[in-house]
Design a protein around this nucleic acid. Structure first.
Lengths: 67, 67
DNA sequence: AATTAATGTAAAGCCTACTTTACATTGGAG
DNA sequence: CTCCAATGTAAAGTAGGCTTTACATTAATT
C-alpha cells in the first residue's frame, strides 16, 4: 500500500511529530507508515483522511488489486 | 466503526461465504466485521470497497471523530 | 565546535486482524 | 419432520499495528 503522507505533511509544513500529535499516535507510527513498514489501521486511516481533508482513496493507493 | 456490509451483501444476494470467497478471506472474518468484533485492515477495506464499487467512506463510518 | 530539531530505526510488549477447526442455532425447502 | 444452507461464536495460533524507551544520523543554528 503506497501513500502520500510525506508529501501531504510537507505541504502543511508539519513534522512527523506534529502530525502524530494531531492524530494522537506516536511519531514512530507516522514514520513507519511513511516508510512503508506497515499500513495504518482503518480507524487511523480515517483520522489521517480528516487531518488532510482528503478521502482515504486520495491518500492511500492499494496497488495490490486485480486490474 | 460502523459499517454497511450486511445491507450491501443483502443487496447483492451474497452469503457471508460468497463475499469471503470474493475477497479471499475466511467467512469468520466477514462475520466478525459485520458484527463489530473488529475492523478490517486498510487493505481489506480497499478490497471490500472494490467488491461493492463504493468508496470506503460510503461503507464504513468512523463514528469516533471530533464533531 | 556544540546544540537542537527532525528523522530513521530497533527491541519488547500489548492488543488487533485473520486463520483453521469446530460446534450450535435458525429458517427454509423438500 | 428432516435436511441443509446460512449464520453466530469460540479457541488457539500467527502476523500486523501501535506503544514506550532508546540510540544514531543529518542538517541547521548559535
Amino acid at each position: 500500500m503506497k501513500n502520500k503522507l510525506k508529501a501531504l505533511r510537507a505541504q502543511h509544513h508539519w513534522s512527523q511529530q506534529d502530525l502524530a500529535t494531531i492524530l494522537g499516535v506516536s511519531r514512530q507510527t507516522i514514520n513507519a507508515i511513511e516508510n512503508g513498514r506497515y499500513d495504518p489501521s482503518l480507524p487511523l486511516a480515517f483520522q489521517i483522511s480528516r487531518a488532510f481533508s482528503l478521502p482515504i482513496e486520495k491518500i492511500f493507493d492499494d496497488e495490490n488489486h486485480a486490474t
